[in-house]
Deep mutational scan, measured.
Amino acid sequence: AFSSEQLARLKREFNENRYLTERRRQQLSSELGLNEAQIKIWFQNKRA
């Protein structure tokens, strides 16, 4: 489960760009304390 802070950040990123570069995913992973797979799957689900 994502914290409300993490979700807000993911939604902001998604609004700016529906697709993440690998580098951006790595940055978000480290900033949010999530693993890259969690972020990747969140974006895939959000696009679906």
Rank of each mutant, 00 (worst) to 15 (best):
E5P: 04
L28Y: 00
E31Q: 06
Q6M: 06
T21P: 06
E31S: 05
L28R: 01
I41P: 00
S29V: 08
S30K: 14
N15A: 14
N15D: 13
Q38S: 08
S30E: 14
L34R: 01
I39E: 00
T21E: 04
L28G: 00
Y19W: 11
S29W: 03
A48E: 11
I39P: 00
Y19M: 07
Q38G: 03
N17Y: 06
T21L: 03
A48Y: 08
E22A: 15
A1L: 12
R18S: 11
Q27I: 11
R9V: 10
N17M: 05
I39Y: 01
S3P: 02
L10V: 01
Q6L: 05
K11L: 15
E36Y: 04
R24L: 08
A8C: 10
Y19Q: 07
R12G: 05
L34V: 10
R24H: 06
L28E: 00
A48C: 12
E22R: 15
F43D: 01
A1S: 12
I41S: 11
L20N: 02
N45G: 07
A37S: 12
R18H: 10
A37P: 04
K40F: 14
R24V: 08
R47W: 13
A37N: 13
S30Y: 14
E5Y: 10
K11D: 15
K40M: 15
N17H: 09
S3V: 03
K46R: 15
L28I: 07
Y19L: 07
K11I: 15
G33A: 05
F14Y: 09
W42K: 01
Y19E: 08
N45P: 02
N35C: 07
R18K: 11
E13P: 01
S4E: 14
E31M: 05
R9S: 06
R23I: 13
K40N: 14
S3K: 04
S30V: 14
R23P: 08
E13C: 05
R24A: 07
R24W: 03
L7H: 05
R18Q: 13
A1I: 12
E22S: 13
K46D: 03
I39N: 01
A1G: 13
L20Y: 02
Q26V: 10
L7E: 11
N15W: 07
R12P: 00
Q44C: 09
N15L: 11
K40V: 15
E5A: 12
F14T: 01
Q27Y: 08
N17E: 04
R47D: 07
F43W: 15
A48F: 09
R12I: 11
K40C: 14
W42I: 03
S29R: 03
A1W: 13
R9N: 04
R18G: 07
L28H: 00
L34F: 02
N17W: 05
T21N: 08
R23H: 13
Q26A: 11
Q6T: 07
L20D: 11
R24F: 05
R9H: 06
N45W: 14
N45F: 09
K11V: 15
E22M: 10
R9D: 02
L10E: 00
Q38R: 07
S30R: 14
N15S: 12
L32G: 00
W42M: 02
L10W: 00
A37K: 10
G33L: 05
L7W: 03
G33V: 03
Q38I: 14
N17R: 07
Q6G: 02
A37G: 09
R47G: 06
A37F: 12
L7T: 06
N45Q: 13
K11Y: 14
N45T: 10
R12V: 09
R25N: 09
I41F: 10
L34I: 12
S29I: 05
A37M: 14
F43V: 01
R47C: 11
N35Q: 11
R23V: 12
A1M: 13
T21M: 03
A8D: 11
K46M: 15
N17L: 04
L10G: 01
N45R: 11
E36C: 06
N35F: 07
E5M: 07
R24D: 05
R47S: 09
E13N: 02
Q38L: 14
I39D: 01
L32C: 03
Q26C: 07
K46C: 13
E13D: 03
L32Q: 00
L20T: 03
R47Q: 11
N15G: 08
R24S: 05
I41W: 14
S3N: 10
F43A: 01
R25E: 06
L10F: 02
A1K: 12
S30Q: 14
E22T: 14
E5S: 09
E5H: 10
R25I: 15
F2P: 04
N45E: 14
R9C: 06
Q27H: 07
R25H: 05
Q26W: 07
Q44E: 15
A8R: 13
Q38F: 11
Q27G: 04
R12L: 10
F14V: 02
R24N: 04
S4C: 14
S3Y: 03
L34A: 04
N35P: 15
N35I: 06
Q26K: 14
Y19V: 10
S4Y: 11
R25T: 15
S30C: 10
R18L: 03
K40Q: 15
R9T: 07
E36L: 05
W42S: 00
R23A: 15
A8Y: 05
S30P: 01
E36Q: 07
R23F: 11
I41D: 13
L28F: 02
S3L: 04
L7S: 04
F43I: 02
L34G: 01
R18V: 06
L20E: 04
Q38Y: 08
I39Q: 01
N15P: 01
K46H: 13
E36S: 07
Q27E: 13
L34T: 03
R23C: 08
Q26P: 01
F2A: 02
K40A: 15
L32N: 01
Q27V: 10
Q6W: 04
L34Q: 01
R24I: 07
E31W: 04
A37V: 12
Q38E: 12
E13H: 04
L20C: 06
S4P: 14
E36N: 04
A48Q: 11
E5Q: 09
I39M: 03
Q26L: 12
A37R: 10
Y19C: 10
I39W: 03
E13G: 01
N45D: 09
F43Q: 00
W42V: 02
A48K: 14
L7V: 08
S4W: 09
K11R: 14
F2N: 02
K11T: 15
E36W: 05
L10D: 01
S4A: 14
Y19N: 08
R25D: 01
K46W: 13
Q26F: 08
R25S: 15
K46N: 11
T21K: 03
K40R: 12
A48W: 08
Q6R: 03
R47H: 09
L10Q: 00
N17T: 06
L10S: 00
Q38V: 14
R9P: 00
E16T: 10
I41V: 09
E31K: 04
Q26D: 04
